[in-house]
Amino acid sequence: MAEVTMTVNGKSVTKSVKGNTLMTEFLRDELRLTGTHVGCDTSQCGACNIHVNGNLVKACTMFAGEADGAEISTIEGQANADGSLNVIQQAFQDHHGLQCGFCTPGMVMAAASLLKENPKPTEAEVRDYLEGNICRCTGYHNIVKAILAASGQDVSGIAAE
């Protein structure tokens, strides 16, 4: 057991963790931040995406101990200060970019990283960036649309019908 201290969604957290505790387990079981999901065991699906020091990271590929001193943000920390949905979250709702919601936290975290790196991505760039995220429900169409809309691009012309 080792003690780790990190900032999670703006709050400082200190806990003792075992060396083999995954970041997903730490967030879900220790901190009860269950919005970070586990969809696979081969780091393929992206349901566990979080931000570590501002970078997109698959939490299932990281030990909690490695987050010592880091700035972590999860889906629970994404809404605006008043609790309303942020621009990306709102775009997902507006464009029906989620169905069962299981992949959604990872998608929102990935979208935030993409738009930070590339504020006006093309459709192809969005699709390419989502390479590490699997969604079984939506067929991605509305996720891509939501992300383009969140980047301020007009998607009204690409309605589904």
């Binding site: 081969t42 699906c45 390419d128 989502l130 390479e131 699997i134 991605y140 169409h141 589904a160």
Partner: peptide, 25 residues
């Protein structure tokens, strides 16, 4: 037996928006 060998459709496997229409009129 994993996503390494079972190919799930990803965002770039599917048609782009301009060439894709679903209609239920």
């Amino acid at each position: 037996a994993s996503y390494m060998d079972y190919a799930m459709p990803r965002a770039d496997d599917l048609p782009h928006m301009a060439n894709y229409t679903v209609d239920h009129s």
